[in-house]
Design a protein around this nucleic acid. Structure first.
Lengths: 221, 221
DNA sequence: CGTCGCGTTGACAAGGTTCAAATTTGGTGG
DNA sequence: CCACCAAATTTGAACCTTGTCAACGCGACG
């Protein structure tokens, strides 16, 4: 809302988003610089987005600045349809990000007219709800270690268990996602590193290699 | 799932639930004893419910017994439609509860066929999602006092600011909803009582009178 | 080459949990 | 109807996990 928007570079393009609405509307490509706002809490929702490259965080803030990140959106993920007349949260590009967008009005109108489209849309919203339910369990009832392990496993899963997992977000993002402080996240990761559960490939500790997924799964309550 | 189900007493009846589906399906009344399970996590969803009287908790559990209550459902609330092929959480009657039910399959089929029904259903799911988002912020970023105050205000709001607010749930339920322990909840309530922000009407401290909604609102970040 | 952002680590503080006990209530059975 | 018992709530004290504050290292970048 009051954040700089480094938006730029758009061109026509059709993709997965278009598949949902049946190529009856145009999808444009749009790109956002690192840290720039895609939409703000309280704004009127204009578009629905699908990530082409990059990563996005959606979050809510308390008046004093405390932040809770609802979810991270990675390549291929759609977001922005899970809202009513005003956005209930904000979305920012974590790194340079390109998205496909279609106007929200077009999506809702078109999707409602099509058989199956309704179920598709409900399924999308339901997926978000499911994630939120799991995350409430994590936030309300898991300790710091369990939270960090769950985070690592979620990212590993969503990146299809790569040899080297790239974390686009910084420690503050992770902390605000897990309801912790950066220090606690760093400590948990350090302990996991010392226990040979993971290894960092780079200096800034963003490239993670999981060394024992089996034990990690066992530690994940 | 492995809990006794004191279900009993059903008769035909039409109400709000029926309004959503346009009286094309029958709604039955059903009743559940205090503490009895309405459906279990992992079950196949059979029905959609609307509460006639009583109160319901929906929750997820960790293997070791830690519990997170997603939401409380009060009179008039609907629940049970916010799920996929299997229930992602369990539902229990907090006190003796009567519900209207309709078969889920009927609901989805019928609702999808009707103009507006789709939006109605999406709105219902979206309302749940919105609640979950707010609750993630509470769980992840509010302290014990702020949580308890938010809880009191939510219940007050949902009961339309009654002079005497009846809490159907016990302290453990409140704690499991807020990600706290019973002791912390009791302490926070005691402090609010000593500060003349509220008063209990009954012995078991379930009937609450809010004595200063204005300050309470100010304390609610 | 200095500065800044990011991450880690250590020392300490504090909020919340755990453990224990007292009180009260409601239910149950005699 | 009364006595007894289980459950719910509150309160206190000790403890511990996590947060806070501070310092440091490192790489990026102007």
């Amino acid at each position: 809302m009051l954040v700089r928007t480094n938006a730029a570079s758009h061109r026509t393009n059709n993709g997965h988003l278009a598949a949902l609405v049946g190529d009856q509307v145009f999808a444009n490509e749009f790109s956002y610089g690192k840290g720039s706002e895609i939409f703000g809490e309280g704004d009127e929702p204009q578009y629905v987005y699908q990530i082409q490259s990059g990563a996005v965080r959606t979050y809510k803030m308390l008046p004093d600045g405390r932040r809770q990140i609802n979810s991270f959106h990675l390549v291929g993920d759609m977001f922005g349809f899970e809202t009513g007349p005003v956005n209930r949260f904000s979305a920012e590009a974590i790194i340079h990000t390109t998205v496909q967008i279609i106007r929200r009005r077009s999506l809702v109108d078109v999707v409602v007219k099509r058989e199956g489209g309704t179920k598709g849309l409900i399924n999308l919203v339901t997926r978000n709800l499911q994630h939120a339910e799991n995350h409430m369990l994590l936030l309300g009832r898991k300790n710091a270690f369990e939270k960090v392990i769950a985070f690592l496993r979620e990212m590993d899963e969503r990146q299809n268990h790569p040899d080297v997992m790239m974390l686009p977000m910084n420690r503050r993002d992770i902390a605000d996602y897990l309801g912790l402080t950066v220090e606690t996240v760093a400590r948990a990761l350090s302990i996991l590193r010392r226990q040979k559960m993971l290894r960092f490939e780079d200096a800034m500790q963003r490239k993670v290699v999981l060394l024992n997924r089996k034990i990690l799964a066992a530690l994940d309550v």
